[in-house]
Design a protein around this nucleic acid. Sequence first.
DNA 1: GTCTATAAAGCGATAGAC
DNA 2: GTCTATCGCTTTATAGAC
Lengths: 185, 185
Amino acid sequence: MHDRDELISELGEIFRENGFAGTSLSEITARTGLGKGSLYHFFPNGKSEMAEAVLHNIDAWFQENVFIPLRESDDALDGIDDMFAAVNAYFDSGNRICLVGAFALDNTRDQFLQEVSTYFSDWISALANALKRSGFAAAVAKSMAEEIVLGIQGALVLARSQEDPKIFTRTLKRLQQRIAATDHA
Amino acid sequence: MHDRDELISELGEIFRENGFAGTSLSEITARTGLGKGSLYHFFPNGKSEMAEAVLHNIDAWFQENVFIPLRESDDALDGIDDMFAAVNAYFDSGNRICLVGAFALDNTRDQFLQEVSTYFSDWISALANALKRSGFAAAVAKSMAEEIVLGIQGALVLARSQEDPKIFTRTLKRLQQRIAATDHA
DNA sequence: GTCTATAAAGCGATAGAC
DNA sequence: GTCTATCGCTTTATAGAC
């Protein structure tokens, strides 16, 4: 581990693979090469604080690479295209799950309720904003945004269940095409 | 606990709330009222065998209430309507998650790969079969079935993240309406 | 900042009485 | 079939040397 950002990034991968409850300090020491002393030096509150840091990093990444472009791109449709490209890269073409979605499903959610909740609500509202700017009525935009974000989450679940990441990539394509195919009146 | 079926049902709820790794024997004894001796009498292989039993029960329920009706209903569209009603009831109008989907996301999947994989592939193929019988071309039916199953999973994730089960119910409605709105040519 | 050693608690699992 | 007691191990977390 060279710096804190790289450490947090690796912590994210460990949580993705094992879940929050399924991740042990001993696995973290093995994967990061850092002893418990070092880990508690960086994160005095232990595993919870590590997960908080990971969630914060995820939020920062999506703010920078997805939410702000969606809200501020000159051409709203370009911003949406960029979102699909960024999401495809982030989830490694269907080979990487969404940690926030995984946390949402069991009682891990309650420990990180704020982060879990705003991750998705920020995403949906930024996407709805772009859809609205591209010509959709507000209600239609909101509904489409919800459908797209939820479709991405479902595709990640299904892709992993079938060990077939292509389910994810073709879902992204379908969602993207539906925007183009829907009447912009 | 009165009988084995009721016990397995309660085990399912415990796994839903805590995840597989997050569920401890002591929580199970507390919730079921059964001591460890009794639990190991019913499930000599411990927690893994309990989860196997839960997954088997889930599969049996879906076979009986969803997959077989989809394949064998006289009117294919009636079978699909019944699926949406059964799914809405099963997931308690968005208040209950899909345990199989949750298992799929982390490495719990690898321990129950067969059950996780066939649950979704059976569902999609049964639904695609019904859609085909209702007049859709085979490729369209397969794509729609995948979209619907994945939409259900995504809606459960999003509903829990927002503590808003209505996200699930309105997603079901949207998916159901899209079938009716799509050309049955 | 990183390590080793260790504490205290909880874990899954087993044994054996009843 | 259910219980209590217990084993051996792993867990999170802390203390303290370097």
